[in-house]
Amino acid sequence: MGGWLFDPAHWSGTTGIPVRLLEHLGYTLLTLLIAAVIAIPLGAFVGHTGKGGFVIVGLSNALRALPTTAVLILVVLWAGLGDFPVYVALVLLAIPPIMAGTYAGVRAVDPSAVDAARGVGMRESGVLLQVEIPNALPLIYGGFRGAALQVVATATIAAYTGAGGLGRFVFDGLALQDFGQMLAGAVLVALLAVLVDLGFAGLQRLTVSPGLRPVGTGGKN
């Protein structure tokens, strides 16, 4: 495996490791962005109003049961090859954890802080944007980072329908019975997952108020 991975020939060209890595990262980040834009407002709104929580929980459970491979193939059969089916499948995969995390996060905000927010004269939008969401951030990040791990790992499957990403190495290796290439693909995906998670952990540190870190643990979470 080390041989395949460190062979300089595999590190250049349009099918080389850097290009596949970037493709994989691209799928991941755009997927997460789209999923977040859909799931965070939904989860936050339902969490804020407290109505329709069962819809959110039911919807995320149903989506969780959806096999990504099938969604990918179906969309390919309907809409043709390309990146579009990959995004549909991955976004559907990423929505449930983000939505559930946001919903749970907003519901878990100390009710007395929310009461006080209204009591001091915030409008509903202010209550949501200035108090509920900032306080829900740790759980929102929890759901988001879980989704990120799943998306990085699952984006591998995109290569099954001929799209790019690190999955190419896994599927090409499988076709050629080239175990070194397969393993290299798997290791690269796992590595990318760790890096992406570290990146979001850093973002979390920067954007979550220090006041929300557990007390007495030196800010570690």
Binding site: A153, T154, V170, M182, L183, G185
Partner: peptide
């Protein structure tokens, strides 16, 4: 946590080896 980051397809093809 690290186990989770390994794609299932990869784990499935690595296991037999």
């Amino acid at each position: 946590n690290i186990l989770f980051t390994i794609p299932s397809i990869a784990l499935i093809v690595i296991t037999p080896v």
